[in-house]
């Protein structure tokens, strides 16, 4: 995501050594564009093109039951979305999901990585256990958790009743459905952040621990004073990647609750899906997509600003 191209800018090396300058420049230009052609054709046709077309669509009252863009609508789609209670509530559900998932997915991942890094034997086993769920298709994870969340007779309900606690109806209860989805998401995706933290831990010089141990620092103090601060770069990265990933939520919610009960968990992407593909209002759906895109862009801009300042 954040790889940078480290090649010198064009023209930084005046007079390329191995060939006459003019002929070389023309040859390089032809070769460069030639090598890029397959990528650019697909990229423009299936990503940039649709992005531009989506922007155009958002200004028309299009419908998927008739062809073409439909009558021009100006900003009507945008004003309708911005004044729609359903749009805002779905936006809120996406944000709520992000608020519920980001802290545990960052903090627990950090804890798991620090614990795993500390033990001497069997690291591979813990890496396997915590990362394995991440490679599972979301549908499989959804099927398993739906089964565990069955009210009264499911595994979670039986655990809670064994502890003498009242078990909620999980996915059927509007107050618990989003929490249940968030729990599943933490289980499913923590491996990615965990691995990023493990990599960050590799970069901390061991001498720091040895020196502080000589100074009499206990293990808790070492974690709090050395490990956590030195991982702050990784923490920024993990947090920002996590916020952006959480803001894109659709799959889990669609599979576990289908946005219910009574739309209480419907995220904004499902709202777009509903208006665009169920109500056939493509223009309005495109406008809602653009508004959502602006939110993602704003978050990315914040991240860019932070990483710029730190660099």
């Amino acid at each position: 995501m954040t790889s940078t191209v480290a090649a010198p800018p064009a023209g930084a090396l005046p007079g390329v050594k191995d060939e006459p300058r003019a002929a070389g420049a023309i040859g390089q230009t032809r070769a460069g564009w030639g090598l890029l052609t397959p990528f650019l054709v697909l990229y423009l046709a299936f990503l940039i093109g649709p992005a531009v077309y989506g922007l155009v669509m958002s200004f028309f009252d299009g419908s998927s039951v008739r062809s073409g863009l439909g009558p021009f609508a100006g900003l009507d789609n945008y004003t309708e979305a911005l004044t729609s209670g359903d749009f805002w509530s779905s936006m809120w559900h996406t944000v709520l999901f992000t608020i519920l998932t980001t802290p545990p997915l960052v903090i627990v991942a950090l804890l798991l990585a620090m614990l795993t890094d500390r033990i001497r034997r069997g690291k591979w086993f813990f890496r396997l256990v915590f990362f394995a769920p991440y490679v599972m298709p979301v549908t499989c994870v959804g099927l398993v958790f739906t089964w565990m969340y069955v009210p009264q007779t499911g595994l979670f309900a039986s655990w809670l009743s064994a502890l003498g606690l009242p078990a909620p109806a999980w996915l059927a209860d509007p107050n618990w459905a989003m929490i249940a989805v968030a729990l599943m998401t933490v289980w499913w995706t923590i491996g990615f952040n965990f691995v990023l933290y493990l990599a960050g831990l590799q970069d901390i010089p061991r001498e720091l621990y040895e020196a502080s141990a000589v100074d009499g620092a206990g293990p808790g103090a070492q974690w709090w004073r050395i490990t956590v601060p030195l991982l702050s770069r990784t923490t920024v990265l993990v947090t920002m990647l996590q916020i952006i990933a959480s803001l894109k939520v659709f799959d889990q919610i669609y599979l576990l609750t289908a946005g219910g009960p009574n739309y209480s968990t419907r995220p904004v992407i499902e709202y777009i899906y509903d208006v665009g593909f169920t109500d056939f209002r493509t223009g309005y759906g495109a406008a809602a997509s653009m508004l959502y895109f602006v939110v993602i862009l704003a978050v990315s801009a914040v991240w860019f600003a932070i990483s710029r300042r730190r660099a």
């Binding site: 995501m1 191209v5 800018p9 064009a10 023209g11 090396l13 390329v16 420049a25 390089q28 230009t29 032809r30 070769a31 460069g32 564009w33 890029l36 650019l40 990229y43 990503l47 940039i48 649709p50 992005a51 989506g54 669509m57 952006i244 894109k248 659709f250 992407i269 777009i272 899906y273 665009g276 493509t282 759906g285 495109a286 997509s289 653009m290 959502y292 895109f293 993602i296 862009l297 990315s300």
Partner: peptide, 25 residues
């Protein structure tokens, strides 16, 4: 080192920011 390399790099960079979910329509 071809002419227009900066433009292409910028265009490819822009792709990082577009979530595919916003393009479904």
């Amino acid at each position: 080192r071809f002419r227009g390399r900066r433009i292409v790099t910028g265009l490819v960079l822009a792709g990082l920011l577009i979530p595919p979910q916003t393009l479904i329509m």
